[in-house]
């Protein structure tokens, strides 16, 4: 019971942080409250005795904060314009209520918190991993044994996703690399900018 109270406090903290991140006018405060959400999540993982996840969460959160600050702060902020459509708002509220009610009953049908399914199902694969994991893989950390031995396909898929993301991002950059070879890149980019602006202006006339 003790851990659940800590978890409840942490979850309320996380939800409040997320709401502030959405509603904040200032971009910097939004990013900082997003960081508070991530660190609260990593503490929640520690309470749930998942140190692997906590380490990954903290490292990724730090790097994401750096990414967000470097990519957003000091750049121009484009305020969203337009009116709120009341019909859309009503639909969104109804969907939220539906998801909440569905989630409530779905979680009611699950096992109780702290009583995992592997305790009630005897021939679940997790039981085999826990029993034979050290003997079969030799890895003392059962999480790594599952990630890189029993379920290595998933890890290969994750690596592929990261690889594809990098390729896509670099494909966006390809034009820059081509102009860099032809000469000093500032001149080239300025010239192309002015040429583009000129052609657009001519089209407008």
């Amino acid at each position: 019971m003790g851990i659940e109270i800590y978890l409840l406090v942490l979850l309320i903290f996380i939800i409040v942080g997320a709401l502030i991140a959405v509603e904040a006018k200032n971009l910097l405060s939004a990013v900082i409250s997003l960081g508070a959400v991530g660190f609260g999540l990593s503490i929640a993982f520690l309470f749930l005795r998942a140190p692997d996840l906590a380490i990954v969460q903290i490292a990724v959160e730090v790097i994401l904060l750096i990414f967000f600050i470097r990519a957003t702060i000091g750049r121009d902020i484009i305020p969203a314009k337009g009116h709120i459509h009341w019909a859309g708002l009503v639909v969104v509220c109804l969907l939220m209520v539906a998801v909440f009610v569905f989630g409530f009953f779905a979680f009611r049908s699950l096992n109780e918190f702290g009583a995992p399914i592997i305790a009630s199902v005897q021939d679940a694969p997790s039981n085999k991993y826990l029993k034979d994991g050290l003997k079969e893989t030799g890895a003392a950390n059962i999480v790594t044994a599952v990630l890189l031995d029993y379920r290595a396909y998933d890890t290969l898929g994750e690596a592929t996703v990261l690889f594809a993301a990098i390729i896509g991002a670099l494909a966006v950059l390809r034009g820059r690399a081509a102009t860099e070879k032809t000469g000093s890149r500032r001149n080239v980019s300025r010239r192309t900018e002015s040429r583009r602006a000129g052609s657009e202006g001519r089209k407008d006339k």
Partner: peptide, 20 residues
């Protein structure tokens, strides 16, 4: 990574942090 909490992903992120 095979003895203690951690592993390739977390360690890689930390190494990238040092370069960043």
């Amino acid at each position: 990574g095979h003895l203690a909490p951690g592993g390739g992903f977390a360690g890689g992120v930390i190494i990238a942090c040092s370069y960043i």
